[in-house]
Simulated scan of single mutants.
Amino acid sequence: MKSTNGLALKRGQTQKPVSQTGGGSKKGIAGKLILYFLLTIAAVMQLFPLVWLLLFSLKNNQEIFNLPPLALPEEIRWNNYVKVWTSGNIDVYFVNSIVVTLVSVVLTILLASFATFALTRMRWKLQPLVLGLFMVGLMIPLHSTLIPLFILFQALGLIDNLWSIILSYTAFNLPITIMILLGFYYALPREIEEAAIVDGCSVNRMFIRIILPMTSSVMVTAAIINMIYNWNEFVFVNTFISSDTLKTLTVGVQNFVGQYSTDWGAIGATLMISILPILLAFLIMSDRIVEGIAAGSVKG
C-alpha cells in the first residue's frame, strides 16, 4: 500500500507541473493575441491618414466637401497628379527638396560624427565646454534666429540661394544628431582603438575605417530623423527663398491656393507626392537599422 501511495504521490507531483505549463502556455497565447490585436489597431490608425489623403487627391472640390472622407470619388482623377507635375512646377520643387535634404543630411552626419568622436574618444581642456555649447543649441527656438540669419546670409550674398537652407538645416540639426550619437560612442570598447594604434593605425585612418563602420546603425537612425525634418521644413525656405525655381515642395504647395479659389485636389496630390519619398526611404532604411545594430555589436 505504501508503495502504491508513493507511486500515486509521484504521479500527482509529475502531473501538477504539466497542468501549470498548459495554463501558462494558454495565457501566453492569449497575451500574444491581445498584443497582435492592439498592434493591428495601431497600424490601421497609422495608415488611415494615408488612405484618406490618397482618396482626397483623387477628387475635385465638390466631391471633397460633399462626400464622406473615405468615400470613393465618382471619377478617379489621376489628372490631378499630371496637373501638379506639369503645370504646377512640382518637378522642380521635388528636385530642390531632394538636393537640399541629401546635402544637409550628409553634412550633418559627417560633422556630428567628427564632433562626437572628438568629444567622447579624445581628452582636451575645453571638451566639457564645447559639449555644453552643443547641448545649449537644443534650447534655442528656431524662430528667434530668423532675423539674425537673414542679416548674415544677406551680407554673405546667400539670400535666394539653396546654400542658405542647407547651412541652416545643418546647424540646427547638429545638436540633436550629436546627442543621438553620444550614447553609442560612449559604449564603444576602447580595446579596439588601442589594438589599432598598436598596429600602427593613425587617428584619421582609425576613425574612417573602424569607428564609422561600427556606428553605421546609429548614423542611419540619425539620418532618418534629419531627413524627415529637412523634407518637411517650411519656415527657412519661406524666409530665405523667393525665386520660384528654388522653392521646395513644402512652399510650392501654396501655388494652388488662390485669392478666390483653391484647388484642393491638386494640393492633395502634391502632399501625396511629397510623402512617398520619405515612406520609401524609411522602409528601406528601417531594415538597415536592425542589421546595423546586429553587425555593430561587439562580441567577446
Rank of each mutant, 00 (worst) to 15 (best):
V218I: 14
P175C: 03
V251N: 02
G200A: 08
I151A: 10
T270F: 09
M219Q: 10
S217L: 05
T215W: 05
V220I: 14
I210F: 12
A187K: 11
G258E: 14
L152Q: 11
Y260A: 11
R209A: 15
S217C: 05
I151V: 13
L156H: 09
G258H: 07
I192H: 12
F150K: 03
S274I: 04
M206T: 13
L249V: 02
L156C: 09
D244T: 14
Y229H: 11
T177F: 01
L182K: 13
R190G: 08
S217D: 01
L149R: 11
L167I: 12
N255E: 13
I225H: 11
V235Y: 09
V251S: 03
V218P: 03
I165Q: 00
L279W: 11
D263T: 10
D199T: 10
W163T: 04
G252R: 00
I159C: 02
V235R: 09
M272Q: 14
I208R: 12
N204I: 14
G157S: 08
P213A: 10
I178L: 10
V235L: 15
T170N: 10
E191Y: 10
L182Y: 15
V253L: 07
W163Y: 07
D199R: 08
S261Y: 15
N173F: 05
M227H: 00
S168Q: 04
G157A: 10
L182E: 13
I211W: 11
L167A: 05
F184G: 07
L156N: 08
I224A: 04
V220A: 04
R209L: 15
L158Q: 06
L158P: 03
A223G: 05
G258C: 09
Y169R: 01
I166F: 03
Y169Q: 04
A155N: 15
D263A: 13
G265A: 05
Q254S: 15
S202I: 12
D160N: 15
F236I: 05
L152M: 14
L279V: 15
S202L: 11
F207G: 09
T250I: 01
S243L: 06
R209E: 15
E194K: 12
L158Y: 11
L174C: 11
A195H: 03
I273A: 06
W264L: 14
V218T: 08
I275G: 06
T221H: 04
Y229K: 08
F240T: 00
T239F: 01
M272T: 15
N161M: 00
I166C: 02
T239V: 07
M272L: 15
R190S: 13
N232K: 07
A222D: 02
Y229C: 08
Q254H: 15
D160M: 10
L249W: 02
M227G: 00
T262H: 05
